[in-house]
């Protein structure tokens, strides 16, 4: 049984079909990648899952719950976390606060108990911090704990964003081009973490990526998109050697040099 399913999803912007009848299944515990040239509709899938856009047709199903009609903030409550292509951190606060914000969906307090900072709020704060410290430890962010995000180098910011998503204790993690802008070392760290996330934390990952070498290494299965339609899907080797995929990428010159 599929863990997460896209059923025949379509969306268009001003007459342009960004996604056209796309269906795929993500199995529990796997890393499933979506590839395709710029403008193929990869990030649009994420934005639709997060309900920033309304689907014209089709549905997303997570463990038998249809999640394409709920409110945007409820998506997180269903256990879906994500990162963003161009980093959307809360940049005027510290790394620690960003991570604790990931715990927001566990909030049990209300504004009245918070004004008094009651025992239960204190307990909740301690729990959030414990979780955040685990992540700081896991992602090696110790040195940056109290620093404001805006002052951090790009690569570290990307890591913080991954950490913030992990702090949510998600079932499904959506990563939007996690390796873009990273240097070789940082990319290696990333694939190391990703396999840990998969193996140790048991989190299913849906990945959108541009860096082919990285995708090939990391993914269990791949879906290739172009112009909002599926070219092919299956195991990494087959998909990457598929003639249509090669053609879609050759049309765009800088793809293999970009990493």
């Amino acid at each position: 049984m599929a863990f997460f399913r896209a059923e025949n999803i379509s969306i268009s912007f001003g007459g342009l079909k960004a996604l056209n009848g796309v269906s795929f299944d993500v199995r529990k515990g796997e890393i499933f990648s979506v590839i395709g040239p710029n403008g193929a509709g990869k990030t649009t899938i994420f934005n639709c899952i997060n309900r920033f856009y309304d689907l014209d047709e089709g549905a997303f199903v997570l463990e038998d719950h249809v999640i394409s009609k709920i409110k945007p903030h409820e998506v997180a409550e269903m256990g879906i976390a994500r990162t963003f292509q161009n980093i959307e951190l809360f940049k005027n606060t510290t790394v620690l606060d960003n991570l604790i914000l990931g715990r927001h969906r566990r909030r049990r307090s209300n504004v009245f108990t918070e004004i008094l900072f009651s025992r239960s709020v204190q307990k909740q704060e301690l729990e959030s911090r414990e979780k955040a410290e685990e992540i700081i430890d896991f992602l090696d962010l110790e040195a940056y704990r109290e620093q404001r995000v805006i002052n951090l180098p790009y690569g570290v910011q990307k890591t913080v964003e991954l950490g913030r998503a992990l702090a949510m204790d998600p079932k499904l993690l959506l990563l939007d081009e996690p390796s873009s802008g990273l240097n070789v070392e940082e990319t290696e760290d990333l694939s190391f973490w990703m396999s840990d996330i998969k193996e140790e934390l048991g989190i299913t990952i849906l990945l959108v990526e541009h860096n082919m070498r990285f995708v090939q290494q990391a993914s269990d299965r791949i879906l290739a998109l172009d112009f909002g339609e599926i070219i092919t899907q299956g195991n990494p080797k087959d998909v990457l050697n598929h003639p249509e995929v090669m053609k879609a990428y050759l049309g765009e010159e800088d793809v293999f040099t970009q990493s």
């Binding site: 920033f52 997180a76 959307e88 951190l89 005027n92 990931g102």
Partner: peptide
């Protein structure tokens, strides 16, 4: 923290479940 999150990035805040 949710307030600060909204100030800094509404999209990310929403994706955090705020």
């Amino acid at each position: 923290r949710a307030m600060i999150a909204i100030r800094d990035s509404e999209v990310a805040a929403e994706a955090m479940g705020i």
